[in-house]
């Protein structure tokens, strides 16, 4: 084994790595925000009284979750133009990330909504709120809080998944790694450094999301089981 590591050859390209990191971060944050919004809408549709709407969401989720992200990207970027829909790499990449991850956030948020007891809804209704008001003021915040850890995990998975959009030519951290590697031939060093950057991003997401969670959900956890209800439903 006479391979001599030369990390200096990698650090020379730091402006490129920095740029890639910024693109990856921006793409991840933007996509995650969209995934939470669409996931909430998806979860509502999944619980809607209209059967067709429910089924549409179920089919969407099952198809997306049971096919690889890479293949979905190829369909979006290489396949859609034959239908006359032409997307540039970045748009196709972000769209693909959002489509893929929304299938997961929908299920996560649905679990959160399910965890909100019916009595909370009734309580809102009983003071005269409309169903929309109940959702906005009573249901959504505790629901998101209940599944917040899962959403944070999904955020990390989303960010890591952005590396795959390099395969359709989006210029982000991974594709810059490829580029540097083809010019300086220090492939192992390049990928080691970039892996460390991704690891740092993962830790940053966890850390900052924990901080954000403390701000968003300042109230403490409601301890279940403290209220004992006699069994009387009727």
């Amino acid at each position: 084994m006479d391979y001599v590591f030369q990390f200096r050859e990698v650090f020379r390209y730091w402006p490129l790595l920095a740029e890639g990191t910024v693109v990856t971060i921006a793409m991840s944050i933007g996509a995650m925000v969209l995934c939470v919004i669409f996931g909430t809408l998806g979860a509502l549709a999944r619980r809607s009284r209209t059967m067709i709407l429910r089924w549409l969401v179920i089919i969407y989720i099952d198809i997306i979750r049971n096919t690889p992200f890479l293949v979905q990207l190829f369909i979006l970027f290489f396949g859609l133009p034959s239908l006359g829909i032409r997307l540039d790499a970045m748009s196709a990449g972000v769209l693909g990330i959002v489509i893929y991850n929304t299938a997961f956030t929908t299920e996560i948020i649905r679990a959160g909504l399910q965890a909100i007891h019916k009595s909370q809804v009734e309580s809102g209704l009983s003071i005269g709120m409309s169903r929309v008001q109940v959702f906005l003021y009573v249901v959504i915040v505790p629901a998101l809080q209940k599944v917040y850890p899962a959403l944070v995990s999904q955020f990390v998975l989303l960010m890591l998944g952005t590396s795959i959009v390099s395969a359709i030519g989006v210029e982000e951290l991974t594709s810059y790694a490829h580029q540097i590697q083809t010019t300086n031939f220090r492939s192992i060093e390049v990928y080691l450094v970039v892996i460390c950057i991704y690891m740092a991003l993962t830790l940053m997401i966890r850390f900052s999301m924990r901080a954000l969670g403390r701000v968003l959900f300042r109230y403490r956890h409601r301890r279940p089981g403290r209220i004992t209800l006699p069994v009387e439903q009727l």
């Binding site: 009595s119 309580s123 009983s126 009573v138 809080q145 959900f217 209220i227």
Partner: peptide, 14 residues
């Protein structure tokens, strides 16, 4: 009409 529930049903996040 005010309604008071057996299980209080306050909003935990407020």
């Amino acid at each position: 009409v005010g309604f008071v529930f057996q299980s209080f049903n306050l909003f935990p996040h407020l």
